[in-house]
């Protein structure tokens, strides 16, 4: 079953929740309603006929046309079926940009959602640790990949330099930042052993 068949199956099962279904360069693309997206993604992952068990990427698309909605894209891959599917959620820019997190479905969504939040300002409801990942924590100029973001940033170079030099360089690399202490039990045994020997300092 190809991506197009998946789209047909989705429309059969979820009806009006699938607002559009099309193909671009041979890739099946489905647009779904925001409120049912999590349910649809769960079905795509768990249904025996779908088995989209690998989340390749989460990203967003902001179009220069201010009337056009911002899109959140999920690029799915079914490893056993060797099939891809792209799923899009359209978000009205006049409303708060919020979607449900899929961290509970794919653990790999953690940093992808943080990146989408960092670059586009989309809030992922239910994400365990939603904060900036590429830009520094104190970055105050907004969301750089939005089309209305000026390329050189909103502040003057002097102000940007002042804020950058005011940051604590060690804050990016502390154990708290890496959240090792919170995920201690999840770490592999050899990493735990190394940390206990003090290779990266004391861990509580």
């Amino acid at each position: 079953m190809s991506g197009a068949d998946c789209a047909a199956a989705l429309q059969g099962r979820f009806g009006t929740a699938v607002t559009r279904s099309w193909a671009s360069c041979g890739d099946a693309i489905v647009h779904v309603a925001r409120d049912r997206a999590h349910e649809i993604l769960t079905w795509l992952r768990d249904d025996a006929g779908q088995q989209f068990n690998y989340l390749t990427d989460i990203t967003c698309v902001d179009y220069r046309d201010v009337e056009r909605p911002l899109e959140v894209c999920y690029q799915l891959r079914s490893i056993p079926r060797k099939t891809d599917l792209r799923l899009k959620i359209e978000l009205d820019k006049a409303q708060p940009l919020e979607v449900d997190s899929v961290y509970d479905l794919w653990k790999g969504a953690d940093w992808m959602e943080r990146e989408a939040f960092d670059m586009f300002g989309v809030t992922f409801r239910g994400h365990p640790d939603l904060r900036r990942i590429l830009m520094w924590e104190t970055f105050a100029e907004g969301y750089p990949l939005r089309k209305d973001f000026p390329l050189r940033g909103r502040f003057t170079r002097a102000e940007q330099t002042r804020q950058a030099l005011g940051a604590n360089p060690e804050a990016h690399y502390s154990l708290e930042e890496l959240a090792i202490a919170e995920t201690w039990a999840d770490l592999p045994a050899d990493v735990r052993a190394r940390l206990e020997r003090g290779e990266r300092g004391k861990v509580g």
Binding site: W136, Q160, T161, Q163, A164, L165, A167, P169
Partner: peptide
């Protein structure tokens, strides 16, 4: 990058 500015300064 600005993120490394405090690092090189340190």
């Amino acid at each position: 990058p600005y993120k490394l500015a405090p690092v090189i300064r340190r």
